[in-house]
Simulated scan of single mutants.
Amino acid sequence: MQSLLKAAREAGTGLPPVERWHPEYCGEMDLVIKRDGSWWHEGVRITRDRLIRLFATILRKDDDGIHYLVTPVEKIGIEVEVAPFLAVRVDAVGEGREQSLIFTTNMDELTEAGPDHPISVSIDPVTGEPTPLVHVRGKLEALMTRPVFYELAERAVEHDGKTGVWSGGVFYPLGDDDGDDGDA
């Protein structure tokens, strides 16, 4: 498990430096990343995994809340329904306050939840459904799949009157956290 922790801490190396690229905006592309993690272009599902993974390496979310595909020479807006990635697995290293939660995305990226990679959970006021997210890189997040969220719920503990999980020294409530990124 320590090798998994090491890999999560080294994640993101080797990816294009999209945060440093500032090309001109070239308009929008009819590309949608749906809530279930599927990618659609002009109404047709993209089934070529290598193409999706390539696009994922040049994906960025800016301060305007819009997701873009970015190269050194162009910046194209796309639609993301919830989050561009899915957290499809979670592994725990350690226990209690010393625990680290390592998430694996559908793009095989690893991220260790903690101060630089917070967990957030919002609750839909109409349906009561949770939207659990974990920060991956830049301003990009992964939506936790139902089994991953259930696994977090099984690991949940009480702290300061809230139910949640510890990771990287931070407590993350699993209910509506009112925008709070947790308590150190």
Rank of each mutant, 00 (worst) to 15 (best):
residue 77 G to R: 08
residue 22 H to F: 13
residue 59 L to H: 05
residue 95 E to I: 08
residue 37 G to K: 01
residue 63 D to Q: 13
residue 16 P to A: 09
residue 27 G to D: 01
residue 17 P to E: 12
residue 24 E to A: 15
residue 104 T to G: 02
residue 61 K to F: 02
residue 45 R to I: 10
residue 52 I to P: 00
residue 99 Q to R: 15
residue 44 V to Y: 13
residue 109 E to W: 06
residue 59 L to T: 10
residue 37 G to D: 02
residue 57 T to Y: 05
residue 13 T to P: 01
residue 82 V to H: 04
residue 42 E to N: 12
residue 5 L to Q: 06
residue 89 R to Y: 03
residue 113 A to R: 01
residue 91 D to I: 12
residue 86 L to A: 01
residue 67 H to M: 08
residue 85 F to K: 04
residue 23 P to S: 08
residue 3 S to M: 09
residue 111 T to E: 03
residue 119 I to W: 00
residue 46 I to N: 08
residue 58 I to E: 08
residue 91 D to C: 05
residue 90 V to Y: 00
residue 30 D to P: 10
residue 122 S to F: 06
residue 46 I to D: 11
residue 117 H to C: 12
residue 43 G to K: 02
residue 118 P to F: 10
residue 111 T to S: 11
residue 25 Y to T: 04
residue 60 R to G: 00
residue 15 L to N: 03
residue 123 I to A: 02
residue 114 G to I: 10
residue 7 A to Q: 12
residue 111 T to L: 06
residue 75 K to W: 08
residue 111 T to F: 06
residue 89 R to N: 12
residue 96 G to V: 00
residue 63 D to K: 06
residue 58 I to D: 06
residue 109 E to Q: 13
residue 104 T to Y: 08
residue 94 G to H: 07
residue 79 E to N: 07
residue 120 S to N: 03
residue 90 V to Q: 02
residue 83 A to Q: 03
residue 34 K to C: 10
residue 65 G to R: 02
residue 7 A to K: 06
residue 73 V to M: 12
residue 34 K to R: 14
residue 84 P to T: 00
residue 38 S to M: 06
residue 34 K to L: 13
residue 56 A to Q: 09
residue 124 D to C: 05
residue 38 S to F: 06
residue 95 E to G: 12
residue 15 L to V: 09
residue 22 H to C: 15
residue 55 F to H: 13
residue 103 F to K: 07
residue 76 I to S: 14
residue 24 E to F: 14
residue 70 V to R: 04
residue 30 D to I: 13
residue 74 E to N: 11
residue 49 D to L: 14
residue 44 V to D: 10
residue 28 E to V: 11
residue 5 L to T: 10
residue 97 R to P: 12
residue 22 H to N: 15
residue 21 W to C: 09
residue 55 F to D: 07
residue 19 E to M: 11
residue 73 V to G: 12
residue 86 L to M: 02
residue 90 V to T: 05
residue 96 G to P: 07
residue 33 I to K: 02
residue 113 A to S: 07
residue 109 E to S: 04
residue 49 D to V: 15
residue 93 V to G: 01
residue 108 D to E: 09
residue 99 Q to K: 07
residue 21 W to G: 00
residue 110 L to C: 04
residue 54 L to K: 10
residue 80 V to G: 00
residue 65 G to S: 02
residue 62 D to L: 14
residue 44 V to Q: 14
residue 9 R to V: 13
residue 59 L to Y: 03
residue 112 E to R: 08
residue 119 I to K: 01
residue 23 P to G: 03
residue 5 L to D: 05
residue 54 L to V: 15
residue 60 R to C: 01
residue 40 W to P: 03
residue 32 V to Q: 13
residue 36 D to M: 03
residue 86 L to Y: 07
residue 64 D to G: 01
residue 56 A to V: 07
residue 36 D to L: 00
residue 56 A to I: 11
residue 81 E to A: 00
residue 68 Y to S: 01
residue 50 R to L: 14
residue 89 R to C: 04
residue 105 T to S: 04
residue 39 W to P: 05
residue 25 Y to D: 13
residue 87 A to P: 00
residue 122 S to G: 05
residue 64 D to W: 05
residue 8 A to L: 06
residue 11 A to T: 07
residue 118 P to R: 03
residue 66 I to K: 14
residue 116 D to F: 14
residue 116 D to A: 13
residue 66 I to Y: 10
residue 62 D to A: 11
residue 63 D to T: 15
residue 100 S to R: 12
residue 25 Y to R: 13
residue 13 T to D: 10
residue 94 G to L: 04
residue 120 S to R: 11
residue 61 K to A: 09
residue 44 V to I: 11
residue 90 V to W: 00
residue 98 E to K: 08
residue 47 T to Q: 14
residue 63 D to F: 05
residue 20 R to S: 15
